[in-house]
Write a protein that binds this DNA or RNA. Structure first.
Lengths: 240, 240
DNA sequence: GGGCACACGTGAGGC
DNA sequence: TGCCTCACGTGTGCC
């Protein structure tokens, strides 16, 4: 229940608080400039200190908001000398635009998501209908389609190659995309004919799944993502 | 110089203004609820009406800002029940993240920019050093690298093909990317040997430039971008 | 009850 | 002048 005009008789208008806030927009006028905590003796009462802490807290809140606004202004080109509403408006446009572009790219590109996953698929299963043993007699070539999506890290490639080699599989085709610290891979894996006749399809797929899950969804002992903000990007490429 | 406590004796606290602002965050408390324009008779003076229009304008300003904040909240997942500063903070993160991803992609992909441009380059110029006539005797094959970047529109492809055909050029390779209503193309264009011996390289390049500029930097009679927000994306592909 | 987040009206500078 | 935008302190609801 205080009247500002009453305060302004007591508070010195000399010091400029705004100069202590480097994130403030230059447009900000130097108004109501006074040193906080510099209250007249007659206001050192209980309600006065409550009111002071309230206004100080409110100033901190305003400063937090304005600081974010200021960093947003740096991120958006030509947003200097826009007012707050216009700035936020172009932020909205920017976010929509960027979102549209990235989803547009994701549609046609093999783009990693935020969800860890591993899938295994038997590509030539349909043409080999019937029992497993029978199908092998018809066509001994085995092609597995495997995909994974997980956090990216430097050791991932060698781990993958070791895992694939250990299952006596060879890579026919690979499409690997690393983006924003995440990585997604799609592999076409072949089992040679003479190996294929000795192996149980079901347990091979099971083993592959176990091995890939161990690589992809492992408890993140490697905190690569935290250590390095550097992001890698690979075009769809051959992976020998 | 008015004391709120003084007003609050006069202003009815019954009607809820916040319910008229559908974009307000649900967290907003129903405070200072009163009907604007409902001033006591004693305040119908000149300064009172100025003050009223001021406070009304200020409310409109706040509403504009909060409306943008509200649409931002819809764009950012899990931003419900964040306060304003936190919301803006995650908007900052989001923008940085999206920007990083798109620039990362642009680095390896042939991504269109916002600037219209056409470039023509003579690829095998270096190996054919010397005068133009001499170079043709050494190697009659002519390869031009042409690129353009402009607003995308449906007719662009056929226009391009017609233009290239009219210059008796054939497309050896094409990398075309359409993204966010913009399109960028890079072409390797061949001139057959028997055509090459009749043609002046300089005027061919000039003609190609003129034709491409006519397509790319034409006064935008087609307002495709406004008519359709639909965006196309093409992977690097052959263009026969 | 203290802290927090919000909307509000106000004074002031800029155009 | 009048209107716009901003920072400010305050009243208030919620935890």
């Amino acid at each position: 229940m205080m009247d500002n005009s009453f305060y302004s008789e007591y508070w010195p208008q000399t010091t400029d608080l705004n100069q202590d806030s480097p994130f403030l927009h230059p447009q900000v006028p130097n108004i109501n400039s006074f040193q906080l905590h510099n209250y007249p003796e007659s206001f050192q009462g209980e309600t006065a200190s409550a009111s002071r802490s309230h206004s100080e807290a409110e100033k901190r809140r305003r400063d937090r908001i304005n600081a974010q606004l200021s960093t947003l202004r740096k991120l958006i080109p030509t947003s200097e000398k826009m007012d707050k509403a216009a700035l936020l408006g172009s932020v909205v446009d920017h976010v929509k635009d960027l979102k549209g572009k990235t989803t547009e790219i994701s549609k046609v590109l093999n783009t990693p998501t935020d969800i860890d996953e591993v899938t295994i698929e038997h590509l030539n299963e349909e043409e080999n209908k019937g029992s497993a043993s029978e199908s092998k007699r018809k066509d001994n070539s085995v092609i597995l389609k495997a995909s994974f999506c997980c956090d990216d890290r430097p050791e991932l490639f060698s781990e993958l190659q070791r895992a694939i080699k250990s299952l006596k599989l060879t890579v026919a085709e690979a499409d690997i995309t690393s983006l924003g610290g995440r990585i997604k891979g799609i592999f076409l894996l072949c089992l040679s004919e003479n190996s294929a006749k000795d192996v149980c399809m079901h347990s091979l797929k099971q083993s592959l799944r176990v091995v890939l899950c161990g690589i992809a969804i492992s408890p993140s002992t490697s905190n690569y993502r935290i250590k390095s903000k550097r992001q890698r990007f690979f075009l769809p490429a051959q992976f020998s």
